[in-house]
Design a protein around this nucleic acid. Sequence first.
DNA 1: CTGAAAGCGCTTACAG
DNA 2: CTGAAAGCGCTTACAG
Lengths: 342, 342
Amino acid sequence: MATIGDVARVAGVSRSTASYALSGKRSLSDEVRRRVAEAVEELGYTPNAGARALATSQTKVLGLLAQFLEDEFAPAMMQYFLGVSNTARQLGYDLLLVNEPDGPASLRRVLSSRMVDGVVLLNVAEDDARLPVLRAAQQPGALVGLPADCTGVDVFDLDFEESGRQMVDHLHRLGHREAVLVNQPEHVVARGGAYVWRLQDAALEEARRRDMVLHTAFAESSQPEVGRTLHRLLDAHPAATGVLLNNEAAASALPGVLAERGLRAPDDVSVVGRYSDDFARTFSLPYSAVESAPDRLGQMAVRQLVRRIERAADDEPHVVRLLSPVLLDRGSTGPPRPAPHP
Amino acid sequence: MATIGDVARVAGVSRSTASYALSGKRSLSDEVRRRVAEAVEELGYTPNAGARALATSQTKVLGLLAQFLEDEFAPAMMQYFLGVSNTARQLGYDLLLVNEPDGPASLRRVLSSRMVDGVVLLNVAEDDARLPVLRAAQQPGALVGLPADCTGVDVFDLDFEESGRQMVDHLHRLGHREAVLVNQPEHVVARGGAYVWRLQDAALEEARRRDMVLHTAFAESSQPEVGRTLHRLLDAHPAATGVLLNNEAAASALPGVLAERGLRAPDDVSVVGRYSDDFARTFSLPYSAVESAPDRLGQMAVRQLVRRIERAADDEPHVVRLLSPVLLDRGSTGPPRPAPHP
DNA sequence: CTGAAAGCGCTTACAG
DNA sequence: CTGAAAGCGCTTACAG
């Protein structure tokens, strides 16, 4: 592998001049600039990333911390990846993918070994064990997901409370008075997945205010369990005319379940979900849904993170940005069917 | 940040001794070993990754090259990620996620800047432009996906030809004599996605041998296009009693399409796909399918890659391993329905 | 406008 | 069993 010393020798200049020619941090004669460029070309020179990081204390790498947990919905994570990775590349950063069951330990490792200039935390829990580690570190961090304590970090998330209210309102306005809310698996809540109860609590309160009956339940993240749970729920609440979904696997399973029961949306039951449009189009999810905008959240997180990395002055106040939900109408809701004959 | 010099000073030894105590590459007195460990603990010392990489020419990082192409099926990629990332971690490697539209250029960059000790290439095309770059590099590479020329790399893939034969055989044995094969979008083929035509060509040949009519078509990777295409195909081939799916989005869309036509599997039509069981369970895909084993392929690729990295002797011959397909029965196939009345 | 030199934080022959 | 020193490949004050 060619080094900058080789480049300097071939170009007939000193190593420092070669370095300045590459970085452009000093004005050089056109002649020298050209000779260095030629030498680089001739030798196929690429700077050694480790050496550069050592000299500059900058890696131009961002850490992406994802936790793929058992029975959590992995595919949704992919969409955040895309937003994060495309934005990082545009801004000149590579991505170190850190996926370890022990989040805090691996976060500490990549931060204190200086492998990254900053980190994006995905799937942030209410009381996330990675946050104390992040706050103690030199590097900044941006979160996708709203924790209880946002001090010292930039936070981006969908406004799940408003989403819950909006879903309930939407059905109420159409005339529904009883509905079922299908949540993520109970494990997600146990792990501190606050978005589940943020949506649920707000939905419940809104239902109460509107004098609407809202049943809530957890559902699994895969078949055959999720299908059975949906059947059980519909059995248990025969008077419910609406279904709210905060669970992608349940959204995938519901069409089959409804078909098995001889029901159709919106004629027999109105359904409204919470997932991205990309997701809906890829997996043929036919229901109106609150857009979860994963690519946009990933993009916002990276932009803010890079801004913080590159401004030496990190005295700028930290931000908490909750995206307003937008309901995309796919025609799966309508007025409730008339009450069944007694 | 504490350096190894700090550790040495606190422990009252030289820097080299501290280094040896950490690496265990030299026998030291228990006393010294203990003092160093205490100093590390006290200072919260973690070695600087860049400095270590510079000194050892080893980064303990693997490059993961994924290309997220427009209208390609991104979620399937996630499953390879999981296999790759879990295996890498087990073997002590971190992962640099490289997702750039220009594959060859970014591959060259991460290789020649020595950011990684080796790379895993996902989504490998027949004549993949990244391969010449990889062959010219110092570091080894493992592929998931079978290219035309496998020299100098280790290759892992599902045996798509055998998969095609197996899907056709399965339907033929049940008595089907006319079927439709739904492929990935045409763009995938145009980009050199050889797995599409490897499966298709083998399926066609097998059909010919068995005197079975097999229609083939491309389908899109999302709604509403993919649904329309499925309807059009079923319209065009009313005598077909079987459907083969080599397209995950089509597998998601088919249940709705069949329902709209008042058809059911396996009573009216037999369906067999090609996707992972994880996928089927997560997205409620109800069809019998050839398991595509993405996690296993990712795992195999990383294992082989690390073996090659860590054996200085890379004279070991390169391997090409094609996984034998296994058909998982989900009850979506049966004897063909009697021919419709004329 | 350019060069010689120090330093980033490690590891590892070399010497004792 | 341990230490002093060189070197990995860069960048950047410092000096001219």
